[in-house]
Amino acid sequence: METYLTRFWWLFLVRGIFAVILGILALVMPVTTFAVLVIFIGIYMFIDGLFTVAAAISSRKSRRYWAWWLLSGILSIIIGIITLYNPFITAFAIVMLIAVWAIVIGIMEIIWAIQIRKEIKGEGWYILAGVLTLLFGLMVFLIPESGIVLLASLFGLYALVIGIMLISAGIRLRKRGNGNISLTA
């Protein structure tokens, strides 16, 4: 395995460079990045739906629950088309889902912290965490653009970290091997 990895060190490096570039773009242009990601989700759902419908139809004689596959595929196709036709609807739905989740979790954290106040010390920190989560959810609910910017920025930070890790791995693998680039397995 070590020989294989050291021969293809450059794949880690290239993937890392692309991830860093994507991360920077997401941080510099978060709304555009989010829109592109939503469009990719729509394309994926559409194509996945086509394959699921084809699999359901081809297995209708051998699979007991093929109709559920068919329904799933049709729904994926419809949602994919809606997303591609109007990416704003899907982006808004994703952001609203996160907002509602944060509001519910924030309320639950506050209730939990109040309930355990006799059993632990420092429950105020848990209450603060719940309040911050609740405020985040309300902010995203009331100003959905803030949720879009936040999600794209988090994605950008993630891509940057992964990219740096991949570049580092590529450099270390190159040093461990002889540094040659191999295009064949």
Rank of each mutant, 00 (worst) to 15 (best):
residue 1 M to P: 01
residue 1 M to Q: 09
residue 5 L to Q: 09
residue 9 W to P: 08
residue 10 W to R: 03
residue 15 R to C: 12
residue 16 G to C: 01
residue 17 I to A: 08
residue 18 F to T: 13
residue 20 V to K: 02
residue 20 V to A: 00
residue 20 V to I: 12
residue 21 I to A: 10
residue 27 L to R: 03
residue 29 M to W: 07
residue 30 P to Y: 02
residue 32 T to Q: 11
residue 32 T to G: 10
residue 37 L to R: 07
residue 38 V to K: 03
residue 38 V to D: 02
residue 38 V to P: 04
residue 39 I to P: 04
residue 39 I to W: 00
residue 40 F to Y: 14
residue 45 M to T: 10
residue 47 I to H: 12
residue 54 A to I: 12
residue 61 K to M: 13
residue 62 S to H: 08
residue 63 R to Y: 09
residue 64 R to Y: 11
residue 65 Y to V: 10
residue 69 W to A: 11
residue 73 G to N: 03
residue 73 G to K: 01
residue 84 L to V: 11
residue 91 A to H: 05
residue 92 F to T: 03
residue 92 F to M: 10
residue 93 A to K: 02
residue 94 I to N: 05
residue 94 I to L: 15
residue 96 M to R: 03
residue 98 I to A: 12
residue 99 A to M: 08
residue 99 A to N: 01
residue 100 V to S: 09
residue 102 A to Q: 10
residue 105 I to L: 15
residue 106 G to H: 00
residue 107 I to P: 01
residue 110 I to G: 08
residue 120 I to N: 06
residue 121 K to F: 10
residue 121 K to I: 09
residue 125 W to C: 02
residue 127 I to V: 15
residue 128 L to Q: 07
residue 131 V to A: 07
residue 137 G to A: 00
residue 139 M to L: 14
residue 142 L to I: 00
residue 143 I to M: 13
residue 149 V to W: 04
residue 151 L to A: 03
residue 152 A to G: 01
residue 154 L to Y: 12
residue 155 F to D: 03
residue 156 G to T: 01
residue 158 Y to R: 14
residue 158 Y to E: 12
residue 160 L to W: 02
residue 160 L to T: 01
residue 162 I to F: 10
residue 167 I to R: 00
residue 167 I to H: 01
residue 169 A to P: 05
residue 171 I to P: 06
residue 173 L to C: 05
residue 173 L to A: 06
residue 174 R to C: 07
residue 174 R to H: 09
residue 178 N to H: 12
residue 178 N to V: 09
residue 179 G to S: 08
residue 183 L to Q: 05
residue 184 T to N: 15
